[in-house]
Amino acid sequence: MTSTHDMRQLFQAKAEAVSAVVRTVASPQEALAYTVELCHGKEACQLLIAGCGEALSPKARELCDLKPQKVIAAPGLPPAEGEALGRLCAARGIHLTDRPLREHLAGIDIGLTYADYGIADTGTLVIDSSSEQLRLATMISEIHVALLPLSRLRATAYDLEAELGALMGRAPNYTAFITGASRTADIERVLALGVHGPLELHILVWEDK
C-alpha cells in the first residue's frame, strides 16, 4: 500500500507532467484568494479571448466582441464560499457571474469548481458534471481552477469503482475525468494546449482531515 504522502506526491508529479499547476493551500478560503489573484494577475494581452488575436472569419470574430470584463464562474460552491468569492472579486473589479454560462460561450477567464475525487496514478480529477453550468465552467474557461480536498484522493481509477458506480446509478449523470489542460498534437505531432477547453489547469489541494 502506498502511503497518503506518496499518493499525494504521485498525484502532483503526474498532474504536473501534463502541465497542470498543483498548489497546496491551507484552506478553501486561501484557494478562493488564489483564484482571484490569478485572475487579476493575468497579463493584459491574455485578456483577449484565446484566438481573438488571430485572423478570424467575420462570424467567429463576432464572439470576440461580446466580452466586457474579466469573468469568473464558480458553479456549485457552497453558499458561504460563493459569497466570500464574490467579495474578493468585487475588490479586484472582476465580474463573478451567476448568469447561465450559455450567455458566455465566447469564453470566461476562470472556471472555479470542486473536484469530487482525484486519481493519483494518472494525476486525474473526477468531477460529477451533470449540471450544465458546472460542465461549461470547466470547458469554456481559459483557466480551470479545481479544488481538491486531499481526503478525496485515491491511488488508481479501480479504487473509485464503487463511487463511480454510485454516480452512474443516479442517471442522468455526466462524470468527467480531467487530466491536464485541453491538448492536441494533430498538426505535425506538435503539442499545443487549449484547443477547445482550458489553456491551463490549476489544482488546489489541502488537508481536510
Binding site: 501534463v18 494525476g123 450544465e132 460542465r135 463511480l164 454516480l167 442522468p172 449523470n173 475525468f177 480531467i178
Partner: peptide
C-alpha cells in the same frame, strides 16, 4: 499518455439548460 486529457462518462441525457 497515461490517460487522455478527458474521459467522459455519460449516463442518460443530462438536464438541458439552453
Amino acid at each position: 499518455q497515461a490517460i487522455t486529457s478527458y474521459v467522459t462518462w455519460i449516463t442518460g441525457p443530462s438536464p438541458w439548460e439552453g
